[in-house]
Design a protein around this nucleic acid. Structure first.
Length: 284
DNA sequence: CGACTCTCCTGGGTGC
DNA sequence: TGCACCCAGGAGAGTC
C-alpha cells in the first residue's frame, strides 16, 4: 500500500535511472491501466514516442515525469499494488504487466506492473509545474508549499472525524491508512475525534507526528532498494518493523502494554491503543 | 459545496 | 480438493 514514503523511494529511483532517457516506444497491455487517459491507448503511445524524460516529481502519492517538447508529463498513481520496475528489455513480461516503456538507448525498460489495477498512468498537461488532473490535491507535508496554519484552519472548519480528514488528499496529501494510524497513535488521538474539537497546538502535534512517521519510513525504505529495481511492494514489508499499531491487533502497545484493537472504519481497518487513544465522547 | 457511501480489482486466507 | 466468502484499500463518482 504505497503512501508518501514508498512513492518517494520510487521517485528517487526514477530520478536516477530514467531521467535523461528518450522513449522509443510505449505499449499498453491492459486498457484499465490508462483508463484516465481519455484519448486512449493509441494516442497515449503515439504521444510518448520520441520524448525525453526531464525529471521525476512527486506530490503526495502521485508521481510524474515531465517530458521534452510540450508542457506535458507522464503521470502515475500506484494505487494499492502498483510497481514501477526497471527491467532488462529482454526479460519476459510480468504476470501483471500493464504498461511498458522502451528506450532508445536499449537499456532497461520502465514497466508498470499492477496486480489489482487500482493504479493508473496517463499523459497530461502541466499547469504551473503540476499535472492538471491533480490540481485539487493539497501539497504534502514535506513540500515547502505546505501551509501548516492553513491546514489547521481548514481542519477545524470541517465537521468530520480526524482520520477521514487525514485521508482527504485535498486537505493534506500523501497520508494513507497505515501512516494515519501510526501518526494518530503518536499524537494519542482516537480516529473518530471530531476535527472541530482539536486545538491548534494539538493539530501542530499531529502534523509533527505525521512528518515523524513518514520520515522514519522513508529513511528505512530509502536504504533498502536495489539500484536496478524501482519497487513498491506491499509484501516486501520493508517498513513493517517500525509500525506501532497498524496490523498489530491484540499485540501490546509499546507505550503502555494494552492490547492493540482493530475497529472497522470506512470499509477498512483502524488500529489503535484503547488506553492511549481514548474514544471521544459521543456527540449529542 | 461538504459529508458520506459505493465501486472498481485480484489473490491470499479461512471455514465447511 | 473445491468453493463460497471475506479482506486489503486509494480516490473518483454519485447521492443527499
Amino acid at each position: 500500500m504505497p503512501e508518501l514514503p514508498e512513492v518517494e523511494v520510487v521517485r528517487r529511483g526514477l530520478a536516477q535511472w530514467v531521467v535523461g532517457r528518450e522513449i522509443a516506444a510505449a505499449e499498453v497491455l491492459h486498457p484499465r491501466a490508462i483508463r484516465r487517459h481519455v484519448p486512449g491507448a493509441d494516442e497515449f503511445t503515439a504521444r510518448l514516442k520520441g520524448r525525453t524524460v526531464l525529471s521525476a516529481e512527486r506530490r503526495g502519492k502521485y508521481l510524474w515525469l515531465p517530458l521534452s517538447g510540450a508542457q506535458e508529463a507522464l503521470l502515475a498513481h500506484l494505487g494499492m499494488s502498483g510497481q514501477l520496475l526497471l527491467v532488462d528489455q529482454d526479460a519476459p513480461p510480468e504476470k501483471h504487466l500493464r504498461v511498458r516503456l522502451r528506450f532508445e538507448d536499449g537499456g532497461a525498460d520502465l514497466r508498470f506492473v499492477d496486480q489489482r489495477t487500482f493504479g493508473h498512468v496517463m499523459l497530461t498537461s502541466l499547469a504551473g509545474g503540476v499535472p492538471e488532473p491533480i490540481s485539487h490535491i493539497a501539497p504534502d507535508p514535506f513540500e515547502a508549499a505546505f501551509d501548516g496554519p492553513e491546514f489547521a484552519r481548514r481542519l477545524r472548519a470541517r465537521h468530520t472525524e480526524i482520520k477521514r480528514a487525514l485521508l482527504d488528499q485535498s486537505l493534506i496529501s500523501g497520508v494513507g491508512n497505515i501512516y494515519a494510524d501510526e501518526a494518530l497513535w503518536i499524537a494519542k488521538l482516537h480516529w473518530a475525534r471530531p476535527t472541530h474539537t482539536l486545538t491548534r497546538p494539538k493539530i501542530t502535534e499531529l502534523l509533527a507526528a505525521v512528518r515523524t512517521v513518514m520520515a522514519a519510513a522513508l529513511h528505512q525504505g530509502g536504504t533498502s532498494f536495489d539500484s536496478l529495481y524501482v519497487n513498491v511492494n506491499g509484501e516486501s514489508g520493508y517498513f513493517d518493523r517500525s509500525l506501532e499499531v497498524y496490523g498489530r491487533r491484540d499485540l501490546p502497545c509499546s507505550r503502555c502494554g494494552t492490547s492493540i484493537r482493530r475497529e472497522a472504519f470506512m470499509n477498512r481497518s483502524s488500529y489503535s491503543c484503547p488506553r492511549c487513544q481514548r474514544r471521544p465522547r459521543p456527540a449529542h
